[in-house]
C-alpha cells in the first residue's frame, strides 16, 4: 500500500520538478513548485512525520507560494513566455546528470538492503517535548532569525519617502 502511494507521489514530484525547471512561464513555475511541496508533504505523512507534513503545508504552501505569487505580481514581471534560460543549459544538464548519477549510485549501494518499517506515528506532543527540551538552542536561534528576517524584509521593501 505504502509503496503504491510512494510510487504515485514520486512520479508527481519528478514530473513537477522537471517542469519547474523547464517551464517558460513564471506562474506555472510557482504552481509546479507548489506541486512538489505538496508531494513532499504527502511523503512526510507517509513517513510518519505528521507534524512536519502540516508545517510543510502551512508554511510552504500556505505562505511561501502566496509570497512568491505576491512577489511576482508586485514586481509585475511579465507573465507570458519569455527567455528564462541562460546559455549554459547543456553544461547545467551535464553537471546535474553527473551529480544525480554519482549520488544515486552511492546511496543505492549504501542503503541497498535496508527497508523502512512503518510503526506507530509519533504525536505532535513528543516532537514538541523534544524541541523544548533538547533543541532549545536552535529553537531560540531560529526565533532571532525570523525576527531579523522580518525586520530586514520590511526595511528593504519599504518605500523611502
Amino acid at each position: 500500500m505504502q509503496q503504491v502511494v510512494f510510487g504515485i507521489v514520486a512520479a508527481l514530484i519528478v514530473f513537477a520538478a522537471v517542469r519547474l525547471v523547464t517551464t517558460r512561464n513564471l506562474v506555472h513555475g510557482a504552481l509546479y513548485l507548489l506541486a512538489v511541496l505538496a508531494g513532499a508533504a504527502i511523503l512526510f505523512l507517509l513517513f510518519l512525520a505528521e507534524f512536519v507534513a502540516w508545517v510543510q503545508v502551512l508554511v510552504y504552501i500556505g505562505a511561501v507560494v502566496v509570497l512568491l505569487l505576491f512577489g511576482l505580481m508586485l514586481t509585475r514581471a511579465p507573465i507570458g513566455n519569455m527567455a528564462l534560460d541562460s546559455q549554459t543549459r547543456p553544461l547545467a544538464a551535464v553537471v546535474s546528470l553527473a551529480i544525480f548519477g554519482i549520488t544515486s549510485t552511492i546511496v543505492w549501494k549504501t542503503f541497498k538492503g535496508q527497508t523502512v518499517h512503518f510503526s506507530k506515528p509519533n504525536t505532535v506532543d513528543t516532537l514538541g517535548r523534544a524541541i523544548f527540551s533538547q533543541y532549545v538552542l536552535p529553537f531560540e536561534i531560529v526565533s532571532v532569525v525570523l525576527l531579523a528576517a522580518l525586520v530586514g524584509a520590511v526595511v528593504l521593501a519599504r518605500k523611502e519617502e
Binding site: L137, P138, V142, V145, A148, G152, V155, L156, E160
Partner: peptide, 23 residues
Amino acid sequence: LPIFVSLELVSVPAFVLAGLQKI
C-alpha cells in the same frame, strides 16, 4: 543543527545589510 541555524542567523541579516544602500 545549531551550526546550520547559527550560520543562517549570521547570513540572513547580512543579506539585508548588503542591500541597505537601497537606491
